[in-house]
Computed example of a mutant assay.
Amino acid sequence: MTTSFEDYASRRKSRWSAGQRAAYEVAEQVFTDERESHLALGADLAARRNELNLSQPRLAELSGVQQSEISRIERGVANPTLSTIDRLSRALGLRVVLTTSEAPDRHHVSA
């Protein structure tokens, strides 16, 4: 009989010490927050690109960022550098704005 990954992981985690569980929970939250940030950034950039009726290949020409990287960023699966974000933002007529994490609007770019 084959064991699912979830079952295997659950059994292994049940043997963890309190410290290991706490470290895992912190790491999981950091990963979740980072993933949400990547998804939000990608959605913001895609929305602006669509608002301007630009294709990904055209944005690649304007920004100097490869189309495949733009696709990964828009899907939230890339970890773009600040330089890449800056080039895309400029090409889209946006600017990067940092806000406190308590701010209700966590968008990463604005017009």
Rank of each mutant, 00 (worst) to 15 (best):
V97S: 13
H38D: 13
G19A: 13
R48S: 02
Q56I: 05
T2R: 14
V96L: 04
D33E: 14
Y24T: 03
V96M: 04
D86C: 15
T100W: 15
V97R: 13
R12C: 06
R11W: 08
L92Q: 04
D105F: 06
G19P: 07
S4P: 04
Y8N: 05
G42D: 00
E69K: 06
P80W: 04
R72A: 12
Q67C: 05
R106I: 05
R75V: 03
S37I: 11
L39N: 09
A9L: 03
L39M: 05
N53Y: 11
L82A: 13
P80V: 00
P80Q: 02
L94W: 03
R58D: 03
R15Y: 09
S89M: 01
H108E: 13
A18K: 10
Q56M: 08
L52Y: 01
R87C: 04
V109H: 00
E69N: 13
K13P: 10
L52T: 03
Q20N: 07
G19R: 08
T99R: 03
L94C: 14
E6M: 03
A103V: 12
Q56A: 09
P57K: 00
F5P: 10
E36F: 11
S89Q: 02
E61I: 06
A78G: 07
R95W: 07
R48L: 01
R48T: 01
S37Q: 12
N53F: 03
R58F: 07
A78H: 00
E74K: 12
Y8I: 09
S55C: 12
I70G: 04
A23V: 13
V30Y: 09
S4F: 12
E102I: 14
D86K: 11
T81F: 08
D44C: 14
E102D: 14
R11N: 06
P57C: 02
R87F: 05
L54E: 02
L54H: 05
R106E: 10
S14D: 04
A91G: 10
E36L: 12
L59E: 01
E6T: 09
R15A: 09
R48A: 00
A78Q: 00
S4G: 14
E69M: 15
R49T: 00
A9Y: 00
S37F: 09
T32I: 11
H107S: 12
I85C: 12
T84H: 08
I85V: 15
E34I: 09
E34P: 07
A78P: 01
S68K: 12
E6R: 15
D86F: 06
